[in-house]
């Protein structure tokens, strides 16, 4: 038997919004320690890795490890039936064919239940090597979303260049060029408003704007995003999810032909 109750049901709604445009379907792997999801987009350019720890749920029970293959468009339909202030409980039997989503209003006088058919997904899991990144940037997630949105008007690719002086995002296309430079913050009142750069060596890499814009759909999950870069390896874009876990996006760079 599997049961996971989340009083802050809006978090699960936001998580789904953060992955549903990138992934058509995905396996939710449930174990005693929590729920994990790892999936590539259809083009195999990016990878989503989601971890929700069991201790972040208000109630969590998982007697046997189980994998629930879900169509994310179907799950989105169900999540639209859940109010932002409602409590979500996910339930499934051992070796399940279906998963049940139960939504409770805060005062308990309305309970909705939706049962969704599961899919058999033969998804490969990829091993993500431990990496000491050359540059790790922490910045306000809203600022990152804004930069991705602004620069993607000009070209399909964005160059991210990080040095000790700061970080520069740039693009070029038919109508011209654009760039945004962010300096490391010297002093801030609020930590989540800071731009913090931890740099071992400078890095310049090129990425597809389309994917970065997709990752930015996780912005409502966290005020801060971290970008980890090293030469010739995928970029990691991480959003922490309150006290429960994180969503990480890995994006393969554009490389010299």
């Amino acid at each position: 038997m599997f049961e996971a109750r989340l009083v802050q049901g809006a978090l699960l709604k936001k998580i789904l919004e953060a992955i549903k445009d990138l992934l058509t379907e995905a396996s939710w792997d449930c174990a005693q320690g929590g729920i994990q999801l790892q999936a590539m987009d259809n083009s195999h350019v990016s990878l989503v890795s989601l971890t929700l720890r069991s201790d972040g749920f208000d109630k969590y029970r998982c007697d046997r490890n189980l994998t629930m293959g879900m169509n994310l468009a179907s799950m989105t339909k169900i999540m639209k039936c859940c109010g932002n202030d409602e409590i979500i409980t996910m339930k499934a039997q051992d070796e399940p064919d279906t998963v049940t989503f139960m939504f409770e209003s805060k005062n308990g006088d309305k309970i909705s239940e939706y049962e969704m058919k599961l899919m058999n997904l033969d998804q490969d899991h990829l091993g993500i090597p431990e990496t000491d990144y050359a540059c790790v940037i922490k910045m306000p997630s809203g600022e990152f979303a804004r930069i991705c949105r602004d620069l993607s008007q000009f070209g399909e690719s964005m160059v991210i260049a990080c040095s000790k002086n700061g970080i520069k995002f740039s693009t070029s296309g038919d109508i011209g060029t654009g760039n945004v430079k962010l300096a490391q913050t010297s002093s801030v009142d609020k930590e989540e408003e800071a731009v913090i750069i931890e740099m071992q060596e400078p890095v310049t890499l090129t990425f597809a704007c389309k994917y970065l814009n997709n990752f930015a759909k996780a912005t409502p999950l966290s005020p801060v995003v971290s970008l980890s870069l090293s030469p010739d390896v995928p970029l990691v874009v991480e959003y922490k999810i309150e006290d429960i876990g994180y969503v990480r996006y890995y994006l393969a760079p554009k490389i010299e032909d």
């Binding site: 195999h44 899991h125 091993g127 993500i128």
Partner: peptide, 14 residues
């Protein structure tokens, strides 16, 4: 010219 790399070039199947 740059071409888009695949994520599977970097991360191997488990």
């Amino acid at each position: 010219l740059r071409k888009q790399a695949s994520i599977t070039c970097f991360f191997r199947k488990k």
